[in-house]
Write a protein that binds this DNA or RNA. Structure first.
Length: 175
DNA sequence: CCCTGATTCGC
DNA sequence: GCGAATCAGG
């Protein structure tokens, strides 16, 4: 794919919005997330600040050179003073695993009420183990999927699986 | 294993 | 300039 000006601008916007490289790649289409990251660097866009989030904090790369440097006369010591003003992206992603495992001896009604933090994935971003619970109106803008970890067996995350597969025996067993 | 961004290097 | 392969890390 060619990096047209329009695509570059979309890249800039999405990156500034705090979307991850893979998400941007999915929305642009035709490019891998690596390509997106590389492009971001070449555009001299500010990389992801190491603030709180995951990733980054790359400590040089002096430990065991992955590839034998053809010529060792090159010190890649860069002192880039990054002044990233962003403190918290608008689309701060969170990947928490809500464990519903009940192994303890205590038998108390565990009602998970707090889970509804979705990842706002679009259709193309769904993978094999992302929750496919739709959120919003497919005809309206802003429609997305939950996107949280669905484990592997269920198409939904723990929270939405409970909503989707409401136990039928609850009613019958009630009496 | 899932994911993240960072870096190197061959094209 | 581009991006796959690779790395380090959460």
């Amino acid at each position: 794919m060619n990096w047209t000006d329009e695509r570059v601008e979309r890249l800039k916007k999405l990156w500034a919005d705090g979307l991850s490289a893979s998400q941007i790649a999915a929305q642009l289409g035709g490019v891998s997330r690596n390509a997106v990251i590389c492009k971001v660097h070449r555009l001299n866009l500010p990389g992801r600040a190491k603030s709180g989030g995951q990733a980054s904090v790359r400590t040089k790369r002096t430990t065991t050179a992955p590839r034998a440097p053809a010529y060792a006369g090159r010190t890649a010591t860069q002192t880039t003073t990054r002044t990233v003003s962003r403190s918290s992206g608008s689309a701060q992603l969170k990947q928490d695993l809500d464990v519903v495992a009940v192994e303890d001896v205590d038998t108390r009604p565990i009602e998970d009420v707090v889970v509804p933090i979705s990842r706002r994935l679009t259709l193309v971003e769904l993978s094999e183990r992302t929750c496919k619970w739709p959120i919003g109106d497919p005809l309206q803008e802003g429609f997305h999927f939950c996107g949280n970890d669905s484990g592997e067996a269920s198409p939904y995350c723990g929270y939405h699986a409970k909503l989707a597969f409401q136990p039928t025996n609850e009613r019958k067993r009630a009496r």
